[in-house]
Design a protein around this nucleic acid. Structure first.
Lengths: 128, 128
DNA sequence: TCTTGACCTTCCCACCACTGGAAGCCCCAT
DNA sequence: ATGGGGCTTCCAGTGGTGGGAAGGTCAAGA
């Protein structure tokens, strides 16, 4: 299977797949003509990576998750711990964004939004 | 005023200030020795930028905001529109994160997290 | 006057996770 | 033989810094 098909099946762009090989997340074989030859196993990994990335795991986390996935002896506690760290990370981001949102939303409400120059949004950015 | 003092007063790292000059957000003067010479006006701008960035505005947005800020003839509607676009952007991000959070949280709940290898988190990343 | 140390300068590299583009093979259909 | 698509590698860029080297400048102390 060439990269185009692997891309279709995994939903990842060709560029991303090459990048993942570059950083040793996957190791597809090579045909005699130099083309990458993907086995089902490789595509399976790509799908795994695509899902993990969609959940916001970093590439480094993905590396660890892949290793755990391939390890029959793994303890689910290890996976769970990683996921929980990541959850905390996400929560932190959400809180940051919500705090931004609140401030911004207040400012927008306070701004007349007409043709006049007076603007509490700019005023708030300006002064203490 | 040298960059160190401007950095202290604005709360921005020296590196960031130099970067902002590089991309023409600010234009401090220069002393005869080549040192940047910040006027109060420059520091004022830096503080403005720092606040805007803290609210999550992109550098490009900041450029526009600065221009509006300096324009006595501006219409507050323009500022408001920009802020509202940004608010929508933030809301979108929050929603993405919350959807991640929900999925991840469900998976964590479902995972025993013990010494056994069975793990719904990995299982969910693997299959459809 | 000399030295020390804290500034300042520019320049280049690294980060993260890709993405775009150029130059050049390879393969298949016509 | 030709054309078009897919494949390859390599280089460069993104945003917004951060780290560090190599070297100039300044003020204070011995």
């Amino acid at each position: 299977m060439n990269i185009g098909e692997a891309s279709e099946k995994s939903g990842l762009p060709r560029k991303t797949i090459r990048y993942y090989e570059d950083i040793d997340l996957i190791r597809p074989l090579r045909d005699r003509n130099g083309y990458r030859a993907f086995r089902d196993k490789d595509v399976h990994k790509l799908i795994f990576l695509s899902r993990a990335r969609a959940l916001g795991f970093s590439i480094d986390d993905c590396r660890t998750l892949l290793a755990l996935w391939e390890d029959d002896q793994r303890a689910s506690a290890d996976v769970r711990a990683l996921a929980q760290d990541h959850l905390a990370h996400i929560d932190h981001k959400i809180q940051d964004l919500q705090s931004m949102r609140a401030t911004l939303s207040d400012l927008i409400t306070a701004c007349a939004g007409d043709h006049r120059p007076d603007c509490p949004i700019l005023a708030s950015l300006e002064k203490e």
